[in-house]
Nucleic acid binder design. Sequence first.
DNA 1: GTGGAATTCACCCTAAAGGGTGATTTTTTC
DNA 2: GAAAAAATCACCCTTTAGGGTGAATTCCAC
Lengths: 207, 207
Amino acid sequence: MIKVFIVDDHPVVIEGIRSLLQHEKDIEWSGQAMTAQSCLGFFVNNTADIILLDINLPDIGGVELCGQLKQKYPGIFILGLSTFNQGLYIKKMMENGASGYILKNSSKEDLLTAIHAVTDGGIYFSGEVGEALRQYQLSSKDAIPIISRREKEVLTLIAEGFTNPQIAGKLYVSQFTVDSHRKNLLAKLNVKNTATLIKLAVEHKLI
Amino acid sequence: MIKVFIVDDHPVVIEGIRSLLQHEKDIEWSGQAMTAQSCLGFFVNNTADIILLDINLPDIGGVELCGQLKQKYPGIFILGLSTFNQGLYIKKMMENGASGYILKNSSKEDLLTAIHAVTDGGIYFSGEVGEALRQYQLSSKDAIPIISRREKEVLTLIAEGFTNPQIAGKLYVSQFTVDSHRKNLLAKLNVKNTATLIKLAVEHKLI
DNA sequence: GTGGAATTCACCCTAAAGGGTGATTTTTTC
DNA sequence: GAAAAAATCACCCTTTAGGGTGAATTCCAC
């Protein structure tokens, strides 16, 4: 009998998964929480075998909650759950001890496969997620280097629409310096121009 | 008896709402679809009183589907449904004939209130949505006008890093034309330069 | 079928971006 | 304290961006 707990701030998702699982003979509904706090509160006096954990929580965020839960209760398996197929989050969840990751638009079969795979001690990714993870691993090899403190400042000001002379004035440095930082940003992030620089920066939440 | 149809590409959401509504005496489950195509197919031979419509659909997008449905079946009410609280989409849905908008993390009570309000011919926004819409209206005084088809094409290519001459080549038009579109984009969206243009575009999911 | 967007094109101009190269100084890190 | 990384400054150059202005044509809605 697998005791399943779910953490998600969307009642319809909780209800949906509950509905999908309620007729499964080897699955028992352990409980549910809509915030990280109430989840942590529940596990003080209760337990479960697997936690289906949404990464988009209102209070502290799924990734951090995942880490805390795994530290306190290493025996509980955690299955990441999200609407999105974001390589970065998947990686972070795994680094924080999750045993797998599926999308909310997965089928019932996928969900059951994942639950069984994870509670058996395995690691499971649904097809689409595996693909995203692979692409992320590939693209993150040389695509997301470290941006220095100063470069990040310059990047932020570029995104706010300031020109190099204006940025130079704000940072009390020469225009040539800002020029250098800007060119280094383009080189480091391997982008062609300002447009792609800002697109990448916003998408990767660098600003 | 209110016949409810739902369009959403997430099985758990469909199941969740179905579960929430199944014990309501005045509500009848009309059907469901996971794509815009199958939704349009359903209504050729069937009908419903209200459609709960997700705006994030894989094929043609909820906003356009909303418009098509309203054009063909003006008597069916449409209630927008989404995970996000995006003023722009809410406005577009309303412009395409929707009668209201709620978030997927709304409570059961909110959902029922919305369904009844809309099928009575009213307009309903859940609290949070109303707030977002108000903020959007305030900020969109001159900030988010309609971007034309061609402008969106140009915007997309700018975001991909192409220069005006390159874009002109791809679209088989003169460089001067692309120049015009680009300047119009800056003017319409009230931004200073490419950096702020792309930032706004990515944040508002225009590309 | 008329009016108003949308799309197209053109040329003026200046400012800004970005490629290349090289150097000094400061800060961080091992 | 030495090596590495970051931050600073400088000048070469060409291309691109963007402000202003004006106008023709095509497309769509009322």
